[in-house]
Design a protein around this nucleic acid. Sequence first.
DNA 1: GAGTCAATGTACTAAATGGTACGTTCACGG
DNA 2: CCGTGAACGTACCATTTAGTACATTGACTC
Lengths: 213, 213
Amino acid sequence: MADQVLKRRDAERTKAEILEVATQAFAEDGYSGARVDEIAERTRTTKRMIYYYFGGKEQLYLAVLEHAYRGIREAEERLEVGDLGPVDAVRRLAELTYDHHVEHQAFMRLVAIENIHRGEGVRKLEVLRDLGKPAMEVLESILDRGIADGVFRADVDALDVHLLISSYCVFQVANQYTFGYLFDVDLLADGTRPRLRAMIGDVVVAWLAAPGR
Amino acid sequence: MADQVLKRRDAERTKAEILEVATQAFAEDGYSGARVDEIAERTRTTKRMIYYYFGGKEQLYLAVLEHAYRGIREAEERLEVGDLGPVDAVRRLAELTYDHHVEHQAFMRLVAIENIHRGEGVRKLEVLRDLGKPAMEVLESILDRGIADGVFRADVDALDVHLLISSYCVFQVANQYTFGYLFDVDLLADGTRPRLRAMIGDVVVAWLAAPGR
DNA sequence: GAGTCAATGTACTAAATGGTACGTTCACGG
DNA sequence: CCGTGAACGTACCATTTAGTACATTGACTC
């Protein structure tokens, strides 16, 4: 049978819809700020179903967190720097990471919220343990090549490079409001973004090319 | 009269105590997460006084925000790089900024919370408009000297340098939990911190010393 | 086509929460 | 020493909020 367009009952669909609305709600207002009633209202179904499928507000939040992180992992696995030389590869990786953060601002908000809660949520999600691995491996291979070629200093760790790039990219999204207000700039405006996007590549390449101490 | 040690009534003291407790509460749990009742309980006085002096939860939050930013400005104004050469000065500024962030983690949490709320709070506080100025001026003069000496490239803006340093320092405090969990490191541990503290100076100096494009 | 169980809706509750009405007390000036 | 107003406390209220008891509906099986 062709699947009915107007299925009256569809557990997966209902569950998915709740998850999606909840993601928006938690990303917008934080854990305490988000309201179960409001999430329910913005759904085709009722609050009853949230408790039926997820158990409670906290479990719903955890489900949102896990789902969001999974989605990000998938997106990150598509990060390909092609067969560029190490210098161009690291610059490209930085730019792609920048784009990635700008494109997933809702996720960045969830991460910020998680950190406000001291990471209690993520710590309950075993699945995320090796989430960072793929990106790290790409970076490691680029660094190895660069060191072998003698264009990168040998005393840097892949994690340090990742930390530097992440800091920069996360900050521009996560702190855009306070920074933007205090220094009267819009970090994500069309007139600013391309320069800032290129800048992190310059920084990382300059650092990697500098002689070690 | 010598001022009484056991003043039974002291508007300033009561107000200050509420503000302090509220700062802790909001920094810990966010705006929605913090509870007016709990703030009152942890005070020598009662909830009634919060409304008497501040008007409501939102105004209390704004008072906390303003007070915190003022305190930070004072701390930042003490940032002195002495009469070092431009390279050492910029490295020292980066390290002091790093220390500054590590030492004021509660403030960093408030900033993160403000950004979750898209900066609606700070925007209501005109007083903060030129908060960034002093730090920026110090940086500008260092850069000018470095460019004049020919040791820094001429195509960088002070704000860019500040952005880079801020990103790095803010991230390590603000995202320590999720980053630490995903990559199994403690960014602020005694064994890690000194290296990360030195690293941002290396990065900035390398970037500033690199030839412009 | 009757039985069965997952899926769903309605109406409700207990507790928490921001906020306030109203009364009291203390310090200080005249 | 007394009037007066700022500073403070108690008890309360109206709403909101997470969570649930109970009834119902519909899809699928035999």
